[in-house]
Amino acid sequence: MGRIWILVGERLALGVITLLVVSALIFVGVELLPGDLAQEILGQSATPETVAAFRHELGLDQPAIQRYFHWLLGAVQGDFGTSLANNRPISELLSVRLGNTLFLAAFAATVSIPLALTLGILAALYRNSIFDRLCNVVALIWVSLPEFFVAYVLILFLAVRVALFPSLSNIDPGMPFGELVYRSFLPALTLVLVVMAHMMRMTRAAIINVLASPYIEMARLKGMSRLRVILYHALPNALAPIINVVALNLAYLVVGVVVVEVVFVYPGLGQLFVDAVTHRDVMVVQSVGLLFAAAYILLNLIADVLSIVTNPRLMGERR
């Protein structure tokens, strides 16, 4: 058991280093954007003197390196600074938005993961049957379409033609749970359709790959039913790739929702991110970027640890 904690420690340390690198990259990236906040707020007609004075007030005239370390030091202590655009503390802004994004991600995940795994297992069980092919074709179609298109199709059919769900997902943490689910249904459904295919196909492929193993033939020669062979003999040995693809898609649900949030005007991190970029609100852009990176690293760490924990060959004490 001790080895797993050492591994977690190592991965966490690596994750922190990665985050540092990412923070620097984000900072440089934002620096490279043409124009700055002062320019943006004051408009084209402002005199160079006013712009300079405003820059000084915002602290934008300090050298980049200094600003970077100032920001980093604050971020480490949980203080992301104040939004340059509206002077509110960024951490306050983030916490509400993060909560919303996590809600949407959790919503999409609770539907898509069990569904994808079940369909993947069934497709492996009845492989090359009509069911298997149908699953594959449908999944492939949804994953091939750009997500904004999927979103608009859903809006057209489920919000416009038949007014089942609202096309704008205007939510507020104070709403009752049922209302939250109802309002965020369409963005969640879009995400489900987008991430399902990947997970389902990987589950199917991982299981079919294991089915060629001698121990599967052995299980069949022990007279076990097809379902038992798949669930008890094949699935535990196919977990590692499945866990990894699930983690990747979870990360996508948190990090990659920008487009979907914008289409449905969902008040999440993605929406905030896009707004911040348009306003050159660099502090917010940096903070959201850092948060995305952290979520990505953390989910991958969890996936690695789970793959090891579920594999007795890696977990068990050596003889």
Partner: peptide, 14 residues
Amino acid sequence: AYVAQSAAASFNPA
């Protein structure tokens, strides 16, 4: 019942 050639491969590692 059946006894396979390679027990190492025919026992389920999980």
